[in-house]
């Protein structure tokens, strides 16, 4: 007797979404599957895409991460180029965090220019994140949407600002990352709201908010798993690719603290902390991962896993 894998027939299928690249670059295509992650016999589908975060703020970076970035973190454009050319990032997540008053106070015009410069420097797809300040983002997203010379994804639209972000994306042909705070219902709700204003479903990625390892990762794990199960079971609003930011892993004391010798070398521990967060997100069903450590971009790249 042979042991047959109990293949589960799901009525739904995750919508395939393309993040466009510049001419000569490789677009990122995610979604399209009708199976749970890591299942041995699932249909061939798109591998997990691993991108890297490029920050613009003045915030401190943990030493173990700074070593790995080799000092390039001060210049977003050259960092983005290194992410693509040297470290193999499939896409760039450009965080315009520097526009936040606590993090550099760059003007909206400077933010938009940075976005344009990074888009010119790399060929891979780019997701542009706001600075997190409601009022500034309200100006920043339309400015970025207008300045971007090619289609990007704007991150993120939430219950409060979806009209603005969705409207900017619609006006200039961009995509939208829909954000909700670790809650499957709110994840569906923001997608319904975006659909109400006419954002096409194939231009939406779901960001369920990723807690770092040891700090809420388990909630994200189950929410991503449930989003995927709901989508495969036929809930079209949730049958969409999921993006997980691993950046929160670096906020954990255990990832960066060098004062505890019994925890081992922080240069090993820091990237491992982010990597473990990534594997858990991948096991839960994430389609896109955004990491900060160059080594993890290579490690997490999904080809052999699904």
């Amino acid at each position: 007797m042979t042991v047959a894998f109990p293949k589960q027939a799901f009525p739904g299928r995750v919508l395939e979404v393309t993040l466009p690249a510049a001419e000569g670059g490789t677009p990122v295509i995610v979604g399209g599957q009708n199976a749970l992650p890591l299942a041995p016999e699932g249909e061939k589908h798109n591998p997990v895409a691993v991108g890297m975060e490029v920050g613009t703020g003045s915030g401190e970076i943990p030493p173990s991460l700074a070593h790995a970035l080799g000092g390039r973190e001060k210049d977003p454009v050259s960092l983005a180029r290194a992410c693509e050319d040297e470290w193999g990032a499939s896409f760039i997540f450009l965080s315009l965090s520097g526009c936040h008053p606590d993090n550099g106070s760059q003007t909206v015009a400077m933010g938009a220019k940075l976005a344009r410069d990074v888009l010119a420097a790399v060929r891979c797809p780019v997701i542009v994140g706001g600075c997190g300040d409601e009022e500034i983002d309200a100006k920043l997203f339309p400015a970025v949407a207008e300045a971007a010379p090619r289609p990007v994804f704007l991150s993120y639209a939430d219950e409060k600002n979806y009209r603005l972000v969705g409207g900017a994306a619609l006006a200039y042909g961009h995509g939208v990352v829909s954000w909700s705070p670790i809650d499957i219902n709110m994840a569906k709700q923001i997608n319904l709201l975006l659909s109400d204003i006419g954002v096409p479903p194939e231009r939406i990625l779901i960001d369920p908010l990723t807690g770092g390892l040891g700090y809420g990762l388990e909630y994200t794990y189950s929410i991503v798993e449930r989003i995927r199960l709901a989508g495969l079971s036929g809930d079209a609003m949730l049958a969409r690719p999921v993006l997980c930011h691993l950046g929160d892993a670096w906020k954990a004391r255990e990832a960066v603290d060098a004062s505890e010798p019994s925890w081992g070398d922080p240069d090993v521990r820091g990237p491992r902390w982010e990597e473990a967060t990534g594997w858990a997100c991948l096991a839960a069903g994430a389609d896109l991962l955004v990491c900060r450590h160059p080594g993890n971009a290579a490690l997490l790249r999904g080809t052999s896993w699904r």
Partner: peptide, 15 residues
Amino acid sequence: MEFYQRALFIPHTDE
């Protein structure tokens, strides 16, 4: 709480 969160929407998350 889950049902409640679902219902905090017009008309409902299960629209």
